[in-house]
Design a protein around this nucleic acid. Structure first.
Lengths: 213, 213
DNA sequence: TTCTGTGAACGGATTCACAGCA
DNA sequence: TGCTGTGAATCCGTTCACAGAA
């Protein structure tokens, strides 16, 4: 298993896994790179090349056993275990993230929550107590989390991320609209709907039709 | 202004704009590609090359006038106007999106909301009435939206996206966890925190330290 | 025959490096 | 001297095309 696998490849694997999971529940036993690619809007060669970084999972002339390939991807991605997450920021956004039903079924569990507002600290959200962000470092050193979820205001986000990094957290999902600085060995993903919209308006602007005011 | 500007370039422009806006409010009048790059974790050459697709905005020996470059980027991206959005899906996620405070200040306004649940249809969220998703097509043809925001369950998302496409919506922000099929002239961005997490676990799995069970 | 796995070819984005202007 | 703008060189991911297994 080579060490220099392009990050784009790693980012596509969960997409494949999700599609395969769907195929499995639909009762498909086997699928070709051709058909999987059509499903996902990806070229068959892309899929085969991506998978070839990790091994040979298909059968020539047949395709891939859906169940087997799915298991392999789960193994590769580490999805066959539970991952603990610490949420920092329990305002509107933070609470929405906590209540989002998509994480649990995929094995991502909130283990702790923190906020800076004294009015919130001590409060319970479900069965999760809100801790003081001032104690974030101590709390994390005592009970580490695999992933940090940052949902604080933009002005506070870099400081929170620095703290997470200092505590050894190696994966951060940042909802704050900032370009956060972080060491190369810490993985950071940005959830940024406004940036997504702002890049699409470039193309909208160049279209003939316009919305009525 | 060439037509074949790489999409990655377009996606970086809002990042530059955001940083410049911050610099402007901080009172910085001028910035070099060097300093802006350091701020954003991007190489100076990258910034200069990106901007060169659109014109010459800097002064040799000095750098870029922050205010002027920001104005140019707003012009290029079409951020100096308001864009209307239609939200489809007003469940937990949809309501959180509606209440998110980040869209308004950037000129993105919710013009309509739709749901399939008869119990929700007719209800008001703030000053926005929830329409029946069965009437989505008619409503959009009557009052077009610039952007569609999809926050329905995964099983319904492709159908909703198909409808938006049929109504001429050319920009879609999809929160549903599916790899949606869409025509090349329709721009689609995916907000998918679970995928983001699932690609980071690949790297976490390969680290020595593990969380206590 | 069908479809995988993969080296080779290709294409496109990033980086380099420098001419040129303030 | 300092920094932009940009062709050229480089790097890297994608696609091609085919040998080989079922």
């Amino acid at each position: 298993m080579p060490i220099d696998i392009p990050e784009v490849v790693i980012e596509r694997l969960p997409v494949y896994a999700r599609a395969l999971a769907l195929l499995a529940t639909d009762g498909h036993a086997v699928i070709s790179s051709q058909d999987l690619g059509a499903e996902l809007g990806v070229t068959p060669a892309q899929i085969r090349k991506d998978l070839s970084y990790f091994g040979k999972f298909g059968k020539q002339g047949r395709g891939y056993n859906v169940r087997k390939l799915l298991d392999e991807l789960y193994q590769i991605l580490g999805l066959n275990r539970e991952w603990s997450m610490a949420l920092i920021g329990t305002g509107r956004l933070g609470r929405a993230i906590l209540e989002y039903q998509g994480f649990g079924p995929q094995g991502f569990r909130f283990a702790a929550a923190f906020d800076a507002d004294p009015a919130s600290v001590g409060e319970m959200i479900g069965d999760l107590p809100i801790g003081d962000v001032a104690n974030l470092e101590a709390a994390l050193l005592n009970q580490p989390a695999d992933v940090g979820i940052v949902a604080v205001p933009a002005s506070e986000a870099q400081a929170v991320i620095d703290t997470l990094v200092r505590c050894g957290v190696k994966a951060i999902l940042n909802y704050a609209p900032i370009a956060a600085r972080h060491p190369a060995d810490v993985h950071l993903r940005q959830i940024d709907p406004v940036l997504a919209l702002q890049s699409m308006t470039y193309y909208l602007k160049r279209l003939p039709r316009a919305t009525a005011p």
